[in-house]
Computed example of a mutant assay.
Amino acid sequence: MEKLREILKENFQKDKRNKITFLTGAGLSAASGIPTYRSTDGIWVKGTKFHRPEEFGTFRYFSKNQEEVWQFNLFRKGMFEKAQPNNSHKLLVDIEQLIPEDFSIITQNIDGLHHRAGNSGTKIFEIHGNMRLVRCSLECSKAVYLYPKDITLDRIYEEIPEETWEKLECPKCGGLLRPNILWFDEYYNERLYKVDTTMKIAKNTGILIVIGTSGATTLPLRLIEQTLQYGGYILDVNLEDNNITRLTKDKKRALSYRMTSDEFLSEFHKALEACNVSL
């Protein structure tokens, strides 16, 4: 970890102090009991009962199969609510406390565990949405609403009660609500997914630590490219090589760490403490 300490000292030179940003994916929440998306036991590898994920996880499919999609999402919401932040989430809270002005989390995760662990809400940017909010599927307005209470399902194909359907009606137009998440056939935007904000963060990031994501979606890869373009470091923390590995191959300011998120974040926290003491 000597190279890590050198990078931190370089980042915190008084004349060029830059942000430290964590780009997190589903692998970070695996220890909380939430399946990842593309690992061997992942949600999108197994798919749903009848469909490939790239078909099922779309607004197009939702518009024709609303009950099936809501069954899946209400079951998954129940899974998220039962899960607890793991040690990696807690270490990120500790790291934020050391560098509150220079810290950001950009997350692909919709489980809300960064918030529940205790990271500041103003420092978390959820680029794929979250399961705390819903919005009108008919887009009668730009409003988002808190998820109705007590509407999770214990089983993925459990029948949705009538009273739950009533809670899923848009309060403005009476249309069906939808999860406030990004589906495969939709696009990143600033209003819902903070694309412009996170690209600006990446531009001003001296060290971008990528943890628990294979880099299979476009915005994370753009964020990595942005950080590299403006002279920042990329630290790829994953158990296996992935799309990020290929993107950063032969880049002098990119390093790979093939270890668990707990192991890396623990070492990073220690290195950061030592760096702050010595500056």
Rank of each mutant, 00 (worst) to 15 (best):
Glu67Asn: 10
Asn243Thr: 02
Ala254Ser: 15
His115Lys: 14
Glu162Leu: 11
Val93Asn: 05
Asp236Ala: 05
Leu113His: 08
Leu265Trp: 10
Lys77Pro: 00
Leu182Thr: 00
Asn189Arg: 05
Ile99Gly: 07
Asp250Glu: 15
Asn109Gln: 04
Leu98Asn: 07
Met131Cys: 01
Gly42Tyr: 10
Gly78Trp: 06
Arg253Gln: 13
Ile124Arg: 07
Trp44Lys: 02
Ile201Phe: 05
Ser256Ile: 07
Gln229Ile: 02
His51Ser: 12
Ile160Cys: 05
Lys19Asp: 12
Gln84Lys: 15
Gly175Tyr: 04
Val277Gln: 13
Lys249Cys: 06
Asn65Ile: 05
Asn276Thr: 08
Ile207Phe: 08
Thr24Leu: 09
Thr227Gln: 07
Leu247Gln: 15
Asn65Cys: 03
Asn87Val: 11
Asn73Ile: 06
Asn238Ala: 10
Ile234Ala: 04
Cys170Ser: 07
Leu92Gly: 02
Ile201Glu: 02
Asn242Ile: 07
Glu166Lys: 14
Ile20Asp: 00
Asp102Ser: 14
Leu255Gly: 02
Thr48Val: 11
Met79Ser: 12
Thr217Tyr: 14
Gly25Leu: 11
Cys170Gly: 03
Ala117Ser: 15
Gly42Ile: 06
Cys136Tyr: 02
Glu68Cys: 01
Arg253Val: 01
Leu272Cys: 07
Glu6Cys: 05
Lys203Trp: 01
Leu223Pro: 08
Gly57His: 03
Met199Asn: 03
Thr260Cys: 09
Cys136Glu: 08
Thr36Trp: 00
Ala31Glu: 15
Glu240Ser: 09
